[in-house]
Design a binder for these strands. Sequence first.
DNA 1: ATATTATTCTGACAAAAGTCATCTTTTTCG
DNA 2: CGAAAAAGATGACTTTTGTCAGAATAATAT
Lengths: 238, 238
Amino acid sequence: MAKVEFNIACTLCEHLKDSLFTGLNPEDLSRINNHKTCIQYKKGQNIFYEGTRPTGLYCMNGGKVKVYKNNVQGKEFIIYIAKPGDFLGYRALLSEEFYQATATVLEDAKICFIPKESFFEVLQKNPVFMKRVVQAVCHEMGIMEEKLAELAHKSVRERLAANLLMLKETYGMEGEGSFLIDLALSREDLASIVGTATETVIRLLSEFKSEGLISFEGKKIRVLEPKKLAKQADLIVA
Amino acid sequence: MAKVEFNIACTLCEHLKDSLFTGLNPEDLSRINNHKTCIQYKKGQNIFYEGTRPTGLYCMNGGKVKVYKNNVQGKEFIIYIAKPGDFLGYRALLSEEFYQATATVLEDAKICFIPKESFFEVLQKNPVFMKRVVQAVCHEMGIMEEKLAELAHKSVRERLAANLLMLKETYGMEGEGSFLIDLALSREDLASIVGTATETVIRLLSEFKSEGLISFEGKKIRVLEPKKLAKQADLIVA
DNA sequence: ATATTATTCTGACAAAAGTCATCTTTTTCG
DNA sequence: CGAAAAAGATGACTTTTGTCAGAATAATAT
């Protein structure tokens, strides 16, 4: 598959305000802008692979990407779903290690690649930016700690409910008092987010549906009762 | 319980070489040193609590501390066990959030407290130090990602084996071709590390013991067959 | 449009792990 | 030291969840 390039100035990027580059001074932003390469990816294409060495940073301009690990039995665990404005692959870049995860396009994406050197240059010249990056990384880490504890002690039902609510927070589009999760996720992907088997997700989703908590809209899920779903996520109904 | 202070110059700290402060220039190190407060804690005492605001950084000079989250049902999940040389509570400090976990002393500890201001001053003045901190945080994050995937798809038996090996790497003392895990962990704590019930840990440990993989030495565990344990953990044996 | 493939769904069953109860052994502390 | 509390151990039982097999539906490609 040939790589399709596109170009958009960072200053004109509609997702600049959502990204860590926001507030960067014009000089630094133009340094990033002048060295970046922007590529359009189709669903199913890979951005980077576990075990390879990062050579730069990816910045999402459009689409959705899943970042996941594969275990020995080939089972996927999705660590993160990136949306426009998000950085991709910064963890391994900053720790100077190999990628520990693979990134694959879920919905056709536009992604800009910023070479390591340019990114590090701005990072080192600009303490305010550096601080913002550190803050973001540490925030992410807090989310991971939360997920760890959740995975350790919550049932699959609770985790599914919690994850649907998280997806609603990030990808939810409000309408008629409910929220459509604007993400074309397969049941398999959802299982890889929750950390369970596909069949279990299917069964629980239809339970939630028959309980009136969610509904299906094509491949997407609509959250009808966030509060009731939250109750499912927090409590063990004994 | 009265707080017992102690004092030791950072330059003379035997764990300096293991800590992120290693290689710091004398000026910066003395800034840290001049503002720190060092306290001795007894087993069971708390260093900080989930939900409170960090006011500085803790640097371990002796002992062992568990960092954990409590869930709704009161079940603990241990995120990290800190040893001399480790920083404690830097995540929340750097992300400027509340603590998301509680820190409790496992083995009598000596811990130095560095006020937020002093730490941030050195961090901002010293880009090399900043880079080292970022690198460490991102490395930690990689470990968490690993743990997440493990928790999601491995059995309790595999996770227990993997965690025993990890503890062996960090706290193992070699002798007679085997490794004593130098950590007085209760079965309950071990269960909180693995993310399972205490009874399950007890049963699996005695299985491992009868299979000749480990032995008990007082409250401590000796790893007799790391390679066989690695096979149990479904890890690639190097 | 139709064949092919992938995804979703359902049922039956087995295995893993949690819970509860009880007992024994250690540890702690007055 | 000895009583009380905590930790460790074991058995019986239940619940949850994973696995396998097969059918129905949807998506994709030729």
